[in-house]
Simulated scan of single mutants.
Amino acid sequence: MPTIRNVRACQPVDQNSPDDWRTSIGQILVAIDTDNGLTGFGVGGGGRAGLHVIDTVLKDLLIGRPVETVEDHWKNLSNAILPFGPEGIATMALSGLDLALWDIRGKLANQPIATLLNSEVNLAQPIPIYQTVWENVPEDVAQGNCSVKLHLGESTSKGLSTSKLVDQLVKKVERAREAIGPNRKLMVDAWMKWDLETTLRFAAQAEPYRLEWIEEPLPLNDRDGYATLSRECPIPIAGGEHVFTANQFQSIIEHRLQTILQPDVCWVGGLTELVKIYEMAKQPGFRVIPHRGAELWSLHAIAALSEQPLAESGRPWMSWVGGQPKVTQGTIQLLKRPGLGVDIDESLFSAKTTIQL
């Protein structure tokens, strides 16, 4: 069994990277090198803090160890971050390491990760995607044929009455439905900016537009509010991109706080945790639709484990991740490449535009 020789990490910054937390905290690149010449790549999060966690706590738990069962490494790494919290930046950093280990696992087997997850997976089967847009549907998206998620930015803190705010929100949904037509799927994302009253009023008024789900309408810690929505809201509630580890998803499932589960594989703890979440969600009434699922980091799990595959558009500013399949007529299809199938330019780990370990 090959041994881990080195662990490297950096924070690539593309010229089109957004000037906010999505760049400064949301992404890091990880490489794990073995003594037989293989390198596995993963993307995690945590920014400079994530790099620090890897450098000072996690990498020494891997270097010199055999590339054994990935799940065993996950347990050791997870135990190491318990003293300073298994939620947030530390788990985001761990996610990149876990994905890199899975990449090595696939390369050792000379198989795509999707095939390792499900030997009967059909890699030639196109996976439908949905495009996330902000406020309005751009003309090119309106003329396409993919599903659309409308990111609604209005907050209950704007000072508008609930009635006026809901009217504005529903008007945008109406315009979006008109733009994409009656047959394409439409969803909305509130990004934790609404309250319970706003959400229920919005759901009642927006029901004629046949929304697939309302995503993260309430702050994450408003469990009572989500419990009320699960009982009273006529539109399914989605969420989970800011939830860490499968254990937290277990609580969401047990209390049916959300039925559309959207873990982000680059933040939740990696592919090891995403596989657990798929297993937890096999009971009736739940569906796993990973955040940014069209990226290769999640796409293998979607192809292998989803009964109704659907992938969200990825981060367009991460052009430094090569090997990403093209979207064609509203679908994406995995290529038959070993591991995760990503191509990474090694110069990123020494480039001046990156922050390194």
Rank of each mutant, 00 (worst) to 15 (best):
V321G: 14
I277H: 07
S78L: 07
V30Q: 09
H291Q: 05
F244D: 12
M318K: 03
S161M: 02
W320A: 08
A142C: 10
I129D: 12
A303P: 08
V188A: 12
D195Q: 04
I332Q: 05
E254S: 09
S161C: 06
R223C: 06
V7Y: 02
G153V: 02
A80W: 10
S313C: 09
T56C: 09
F249S: 06
G50R: 13
G293K: 06
D14G: 06
D98W: 03
W102C: 07
P66G: 07
H151P: 00
Q356P: 01
I28E: 00
T354L: 14
P290H: 12
L160N: 01
A281C: 00
E307K: 06
I63Q: 08
T272R: 08
G240K: 07
Q356D: 02
P316N: 08
P284F: 08
G37R: 12
S350M: 08
N6H: 11
N247R: 12
L335A: 02
N145T: 01
A294E: 04
A206L: 13
K352E: 14
G181D: 13
L299I: 05
L29Y: 11
T354W: 15
D224T: 05
V53W: 12
Q205H: 11
T91P: 04
A80E: 10
P284W: 06
V268H: 00
L101F: 01
L51G: 04
R105Y: 02
A304C: 11
V67L: 15
I104D: 12
D345W: 08
Y226H: 14
S157M: 06
D55A: 09
G42E: 09
L117D: 14
I180C: 14
E207P: 13
C233W: 10
C233A: 13
Q333I: 02
G269T: 04
F41W: 14
D19S: 10
V137S: 07
G44V: 08
L97Q: 13
A124V: 10
V43W: 09
G42H: 07
N145D: 00
P338T: 01
T132M: 09
G153H: 08
I113C: 05
R292N: 05
A351V: 03
E178Y: 04
E71A: 14
L220D: 11
V137L: 05
D343G: 12
L274Q: 11
E135S: 04
N110A: 15
A204K: 11
P219R: 13
S347M: 02
L211D: 00
L165Y: 07
A176K: 03
G330C: 03
T228K: 12
I289C: 12
L101M: 01
K326F: 08
D264E: 11
D195G: 00
R5S: 09
G26D: 05
R223W: 10
R315T: 10
K171P: 00
Q248E: 15
K107P: 04
R292V: 09
T56Y: 08
Q333C: 09
N221H: 13
F249M: 06
E241W: 03
F249V: 10
D103M: 00
Y226D: 07
L51W: 10
V137R: 01
S155V: 04
F349V: 12
V7P: 07
F244T: 14
K59W: 10
R315N: 13
W74I: 14
A206E: 08
L117H: 07
